[in-house]
Design a protein around this nucleic acid. Structure first.
Lengths: 105, 105
DNA sequence: CATAATCATAAACCATGGCTTATGATAAGC
DNA sequence: GCTTATCATAAGCCATGGTTTATGATTATG
């Protein structure tokens, strides 16, 4: 356990999460994203690169522009990863509650 | 939307996530954590500070040592936050699938 | 009361990464 | 074909943050 997980790092940055959410709203081109965001076009491209490597997002060339969509692959992986970590945390918390109950006896 | 979310940032760093998972396994003192981790005691304390401010973790003084437990407050908040974001992402993906179906007609 | 143990904070260091400008590559439009 | 539009990459800058050593505060121990 405890490797570095790309999806987590990808969504930790506020701007990058904004990019992700914009794409989640609907597929968008790089320029389309740049128009909305307060950063330059290369900055957007770099965020997209990170999201793409985490497989959270997928590029679909259309003419001169690149339309970015959500990518089910990484989306599923991250969901599974979160569920696992979340399950562990909740189980741990449950154990803790049981322990304090036990002590109170 | 799209503010910075403390819980997300808190769990983005690998070492800090390791700290969180160790505490999730069972409550531990700072020294106990330091013995396991490959970083110094002050480093551990600083990670704990971040986790505590995100309300993912809670300190319980016991003599000279500080026992850290999971904190249900932040845990619940983060879970809700993830569910919300995740719901949005999944809805968006669903919409996308429906759209491509529509196109194929 | 003095020493040891545990922890948090401060200061300094330095790598990481997010941002910018500059530039080249590809595709559309005239 | 030449210009325009869209995008990715490179190089450089700089703030952020994760780390270390040093130190002080608090509590147990003898």
């Amino acid at each position: 356990m405890v490797y570095d997980y790309a999806g987590m790092v990808a969504l930790a940055d506020p701007t990058r999460r904004k990019v992700f959410e914009l794409i989640a709203d609907r597929p968008r081109s790089v320029i389309d994203l740049t128009r909305v965001l307060p950063v330059s076009q290369p900055a957007v491209s770099q965020h997209l690169k990170v999201l793409k490597e985490a497989r959270l997002v997928r590029a679909e060339p259309k003419g001169a522009s690149n339309i970015y969509h959500l990518d089910p692959h990484g989306l599923g992986e991250m969901r599974a990863w979160l569920d696992r970590m979340w399950g562990d945390a909740l189980d741990a918390f449950k154990r803790e509650v049981d322990n304090s109950k036990e002590k109170r006896k």
